[in-house]
Design a protein around this nucleic acid. Structure first.
Ligand SMILES: [Mn+2]
Ligand SMILES: [Mn+2]
Ligand SMILES: [Mn+2]
Ligand SMILES: [Mn+2]
Lengths: 220, 220
DNA sequence: GATTATTTTTAGACTAGCCTAAAAAATAAG
DNA sequence: CTTATTTTTTAGGCTAGTCTAAAAATAATC
């Protein structure tokens, strides 16, 4: 049995490994967990002793099969709980992350599988992130963002790259939720801001900063 | 914010205080938490510093208003989660306690209240224990047990005093669930065992050990 | 009321996880 | 290729929570 801290390290290494090519650096783990590099070194050694990460001094860390399986199953829990909170308990998508951070550490296969069934086997969490299946397979979605669209093109919102409360809240305020249809009218050359309409409603203006974090599926 | 350990101590003190007249002894807390008396003394001092328990050396501990409120709210969480697991995720009543022990520590008023609403404001958990309301009021039920019935009297199962897996499992096997109707036929003088029928079905034999832990409501 | 027995507290030590400061290794610049 | 910068590791120390063993206080017994 692992401690919550150990589980969080595995998750952090997994997340960083998606961005880094080879071994995950001590510093990036430290950044992810808001802790110090020296603490990371300590923990990596411990996880290495437990055969959950491969580690050679100064070479960064990679997850073993076993370590990766644990990380993915925690992410599975996290995303299922987020769905539960939004779908069943009427939470908003900007309110669920912190609670899911706690709920994800309750380790019970039966709990996870029953919850999955209760939610009718959702494929994505409230932020559009894919939910790993029971065997740990993840369907990463293509990363086309609103910023990639040209004028007059149309897309559907399928996820967000940035998950800060303020961003999620902003999106909700302008009705840009999962599944919303967005039509690009015009792109300003100077700052790459867009005017676009949401669900064929009023036209609004969206900054590049905002559009590049909105994952969409291009229509037609 | 309290640690999970601190919360568990408050809960343990609360539970013991229901059985003990005045201050809860160091030993009974140690027994409840399966820890050592010396650890308890350390923690009680800490909780006393935080004004959650009243403590004078060698005098035992009592909860302050604040400490009691926290304990009760954790129990509220615990029992609500047990209802969730049984009602929504199809767990059996002998499988939910350990999971609820973990879930109860997720502190979010919104989560608790939304869960309560989702479950349609249950009054009792799967073991018949009363769920404290939002303000911490608890409706303890009268403690008439099956062992208190005479021959030919009839009762309805409303709870259990003993919550071990083996007992709960046994009850389930003989269909003695919450709400079951039980009719006493005969009581053996020698060992106080009973023959009784469940839901007007076949007559079975129940030991005193079993009957005295089954809380019932006497019919008429 | 003195003497055991029990309970509780103290003292000191251990582990997990974290930190700061300094040393060592790796990387980047000149 | 030598020096400066950055990254990583080590060394040592701190807190929370636990334990064992010993001391102190309370309770029980003679
Ligand atoms: Mn999240
Ligand atoms: Mn998410
Ligand atoms: Mn329980
Ligand atoms: Mn219960």
């Amino acid at each position: 049995m692992l401690t919550i801290t150990e589980e969080n390290y595995l998750k952090a290494i997994f997340k960083s490994s998606l961005k880094e090519t080879d071994g995950v650096s001590t510093n990036s783990i430290a950044k992810e967990l808001e802790t110090k590099a020296s603490s990371v070194t300590d923990m990596i050694k411990k996880l290495s002793d437990k055969k959950l990460v491969n580690y050679k001094k100064y070479q960064g860390a990679t997850l073993t099969k076993q370590g990766k399986d644990i990380a993915v199953s925690i992410i599975r829990n996290h995303r299922l709980w987020e769905v539960f909170l939004v779908e069943k308990l009427n939470f908003k998508w900007d309110e669920v992350h912190d609670l899911a951070e706690e709920l994800e550490h309750i380790n019970s296969e039966k709990l996870t599988e029953q919850l999955d069934a209760f939610l009718e086997f959702p494929k994505h969490d409230p932020h559009g992130d894919p939910i790993p299946d029971k065997n740990g397979n993840i369907n990463r979605h293509n990363d086309i963002t609103l910023a990639d669209l040209q004028a007059n093109e149309i897309g559907t919102v399928v996820g967000v790259k940035e998950q800060s409360k303020s961003y999620l809240n902003y999106l909700e305020n302008i009705q840009l939720e999962l599944g919303a249809k967005i039509t690009v009218h015009n792109i300003v050359d100077f700052d790459r801001s867009m005017s676009a309409s949401i669900n064929n409603g009023n036209s609004i203006n969206i900054s590049h900063q905002a559009s590049k974090n909105l994952i969409i599926k291009k229509s037609k």
